[in-house]
């Protein structure tokens, strides 16, 4: 059990990183990773919501299957995620204001982060168990955190030094930077621990 969880988590963080291998969560990845602190905040918020959503949606999925309403999966999941985000936001604002101040502004953006819905849908597709789902969600979130932080680090360095051609300035060079990071991450492909 433990080894299974470790292997699922490591593969979701490195080998099957949501951004560098599964094409999920790229919009916030490109949009937010302007500076390091924002990136870390966003990554932490995503990790948090993702693990929570994985847990809740596992029960919702069970419920829908029992009721014979499996075709409403997508609709139900997105509603769960949206309300979860809302709920987390309210809870944090009231009870842990310091955490709210650092994560709060990123929370509304997470509803439309396809990494969260993607993780939940993948869990449902795989038919994984409860703990496996939660760990997969958390690990995928950590993978997102790793990717977005690395990207922000590299971009910060490039802001100091790079002098790219006019037409590559801005978005294109960031995308190419992301491509090069993805190339480096290719080393983790197919990595299996066990």
């Amino acid at each position: 059990m433990l080894s299974r969880i470790v292997s699922v988590s490591l593969s979701a963080i490195l080998a099957e990183n949501f951004i560098f291998s599964r094409f999920l969560g790229i919009c916030p990845f490109v949009g937010v990773a302007g500076c390091r602190d924002t990136a870390v905040g966003m990554g932490l918020a995503v990790t948090f919501v993702m693990s929570l959503a994985s847990a809740v949606c596992w029960w919702v999925d069970r419920l829908l299957t029992a009721l014979g309403l499996a075709y409403l999966q997508t609709l139900a999941f997105i509603l769960v995620i949206a309300s979860l985000v809302q709920f987390v936001e309210m809870f944090l604002r009231k009870n842990i204001p310091s955490l709210y101040r650092s994560l709060g502004i990123y929370l509304p953006l997470i509803t439309t982060n396809c990494a969260v819905l993607g993780a939940v849908l993948l869990n449902a597709q795989e038919g994984s168990g409860f703990f496996e789902s939660v760990f997969f969600g958390a690990a995928a979130g950590l993978g997102f955190l790793l990717a977005i932080t690395l990207f922000a680090e590299v971009r910060e360095r490039l802001d100091y030094s790079a002098e790219c051609p006019k037409c590559f300035e801005g978005t294109p060079i960031s995308l190419i930077t992301a491509a090069l990071i993805a190339l480096a991450f290719m080393g983790f492909r197919g990595m299996k621990i066990l």
Partner: peptide
């Protein structure tokens, strides 16, 4: 590799660069 995310980022980056070039 072009079918993998690496290729996606690279192709989109080049495409946007081309558009920016034509625009300027």
């Amino acid at each position: 590799y072009l079918i993998l995310p690496f290729g996606g980022f690279l192709t989109l980056g080049c495409l946007i660069a081309l558009v920016q070039h034509l625009r300027t």
